[in-house]
């Protein structure tokens, strides 16, 4: 386990942000910590990246204790925080060379590394412009590039795509995908279920200071109930007549029937409806989205 926490707690004044957080992250995997604003995602990342001390509990990152062996942890990780930590009045290239020098690269090696990263993140044209003039997406890309000057074993990404336009978001996702292929473990937070669904091997839902769900996107979706079939009829009366033979719930011209998602079940439902002499206009299968999962989880826990 590259990250392992036990009973992490953190309070700010009278606000309890974390109340006993237990997390395990396997090396080489992508974990998404999911939660609404104020759930404690940033706090968790700050504790794991040695920026904030927990009030209680323990956290090990790459085998080192974040409180007692912070220096060793820092040698293994990189952090891309929620707000781009870039020097506005330096150019993109200067920012990258600076980080490389701080990481112990000699001057020529630092310049070469900066050039490489500028190319990889599509910033070559803007390399010698001050970051102040960059768009949000460029800034974010530079921020990520700065985290990759020395390849980390574990990369923390705090809401990497919040506030980005769709194109920049896709670019970020692709960059993250490349890192995963290189074997970097990624610990990211997000408010977007779509993002967690797309990037993460495992999703942990944070609510009220603790973990309320933990699993793959599929497992989480199954946990709120299986697939359902939505049958649409020409009129509401038809929907009710069909309901008499198939069960389910009718809502206007639509009838929703719980299903296991198999072809056999779909066949049987349609046969039953046709036998009752009702015409079906359309059929669609509906898998629960992570949004459904999220709503049901946070509703239960609240």
């Amino acid at each position: 386990m590259i990250v392992e926490t036990e009973g992490l707690t953190k309070r700010y004044g009278s606000t309890t942000v974390l109340s006993g957080l237990d997390l395990k992250v396997a090396e080489g995997s992508v974990l998404a910590l999911l939660g609404p604003n104020g759930a404690g995602k940033t706090t968790t990342i700050r504790i794991l990246s040695t920026l904030t001390r927990p009030d209680g509990g323990t956290a090990q990152v790459c085998g080192f204790d974040v409180a007692r062996e912070a220096a060793a942890v820092r040698g293994m990780i990189s952090l891309t925080g929620q707000y781009a930590a870039v020097d506005e009045e330096q150019t993109g290239r200067e920012n990258l060379v600076m980080i490389a020098r701080l990481r112990g690269f000699a001057r020529p090696a630092a310049r070469a590394r900066a050039l490489e990263l500028l190319e990889r993140f599509g910033l070559t044209d803007a390399a010698d412009r001050r970051v102040r003039t960059y768009s949000g997406g460029m800034r974010r890309r530079l921020d990520l590039a700065m985290s990759l000057v020395a390849q980390p074993r574990l990369l923390f990404l705090d809401e990497p795509t919040t506030g980005l336009d769709p194109v920049s978001r896709t670019t970020m996702w692709d960059a993250i995908g490349d890192l995963v292929r290189d074997g970097v473990t990624i610990f990211l937070t997000t408010q977007y279920l779509e993002e967690a669904d797309r990037l993460a091997d495992r999703i942990v839902v944070l609510h009220n200071g603790g973990v309320v769900a933990d699993g793959t996107a599929d497992a989480l979706k199954n946990s709120v109930g299986g697939t359902r079939l939505d049958l649409t009829f020409p009129c509401a009366e038809d929907a009710l007549r069909a309901k008499a033979v198939t069960g389910g719930t009718a809502d206007g011209m639509t009838l929703s029937v719980p299903s296991d998602g198999s072809a056999v079940h779909l066949h049987r439902v349609l046969d039953d409806v046709l036998a009752a002499r009702v015409d079906v206009l359309r059929v669609s299968t509906h898998r629960p989205t992570l949004d459904d999962v999220f709503t049901s989880l946070t509703a239960v826990a609240a």
Binding site: S49, T50, L51, R74, L79, A85, D87, L102, R103
Partner: peptide, 13 residues
């Protein structure tokens, strides 16, 4: 305040 310090503090320097 700008979070630049967080980047530096999370590095082994």
């Amino acid at each position: 305040k700008k979070g630049v310090v967080d980047r530096f503090r999370s590095m082994p320097i």
